[in-house]
Amino acid sequence: MSPRFSRRALGTSIAALPLPVMAQAWPTRPLRWVVPYAPGGGSDFLARTIAAAISGPLGQTVLVENRPGGATVIATEAVARAAPDGYTVLSADMTALIINPAGFRRLPYDPIKDLKPVCTTATFNFVLAVSPTLAPRSVAELVAMARAQPGRLNFASPGIGSPSHLATERFGRNLNLTLTHVPYRGGAPAVQDLVAGVADAMFIDYASGAPHFEAGRLRPLAATAPTRMSLLPDLQTLAEAGFPGNDIYSWQGVMAPAGTPDAIVARLGAAIRAAVNDPAVADRLRAIGLTPLPGDSASFAALIQSETAIWGTLIRELGLVLDS
């Protein structure tokens, strides 16, 4: 019997039980929360903060397991193949749910068929920043330079297909700019060259940019989310700077294996939303540049659909192949 068939068969047997009984009995043992990134980063901090907050209300420990590698594919496939019993969940972001499905020719999971949205948790804020050696001190001046010198501006990113890269492409297309994308092998070397003036600009996540903003090693020009960031309250958004329609932010939520009973998904989602809405938890998230995003299963599904229309379409138009 194949693993996929076994999982589906188990899902069928679980679904056959009365859902109220399932929800009341669950959980009876610790939960496993799989994070597709290494310990110490923003995704790990987010999962561990929420896991600690929901362990008490659920009456069971929520164990965070880091499974980095394969551009989130390793962790995502593992959860997609897990038993749909509510004891294994995934920190899922736009890389796992939108970028990979659009850019991989061969992907060992289907985000719609193999996974089930539980809830959203937070957004990761991005900032359009430039090297302090660059003359522009506003988005308007940067755009004017790009128009006057097509291809002159080098935009760094952590790699091809990263949210930073896609933000660069979308920004350039929306404003009819010719920008030169320079992909790096990860965020650290990209930021290092931006600070050194080797690269000119970057859509950088707040956590990576914050120390350099404070020290004056990078110049932030605009926040890229629809609203201003609490940690940079004086920084305009792109829309406020006169360039609407360029909202760019990354987000994260929780997914369970397809077939997980709705009653369990609802109970787990409610516990996570309560944690994210808790002022102490929300303050911890905001302190590292995250914005709490408490949403239910339906709103998460709608977010995936709307973001796929934007980023999935862009990836296909660019002809990006991420598993070459």
Rank of each mutant, 00 (worst) to 15 (best):
G216L: 14
R217W: 07
R217H: 15
L218W: 02
L218G: 05
R219D: 09
R219F: 10
P220C: 07
P220N: 06
L221V: 13
A222C: 03
A222P: 08
A223D: 08
T224W: 04
A225L: 06
A225R: 03
A225Y: 08
P226W: 01
P226C: 00
P226R: 04
T227E: 08
T227K: 05
R228G: 02
R228I: 13
M229G: 11
M229Q: 11
M229N: 10
M229W: 12
S230E: 08
S230Y: 00
S230K: 10
S230R: 08
S230I: 12
L231H: 11
L231W: 08
L231C: 10
L231P: 04
L232S: 11
L232T: 11
L232D: 01
L232H: 02
P233V: 01
L235Q: 00
Q236P: 15
Q236Y: 03
Q236A: 15
T237Q: 03
T237A: 00
L238A: 00
L238Q: 03
L238S: 00
L238G: 03
A239I: 09
A239R: 06
E240V: 06
E240G: 14
E240S: 10
A241Y: 05
G242W: 00
G242I: 09
G242F: 02
G242C: 07
F243K: 06
F243G: 09
F243E: 13
P244S: 09
P244V: 08
G245C: 08
G245L: 11
D247A: 14
I248G: 07
I248W: 13
Y249Q: 10
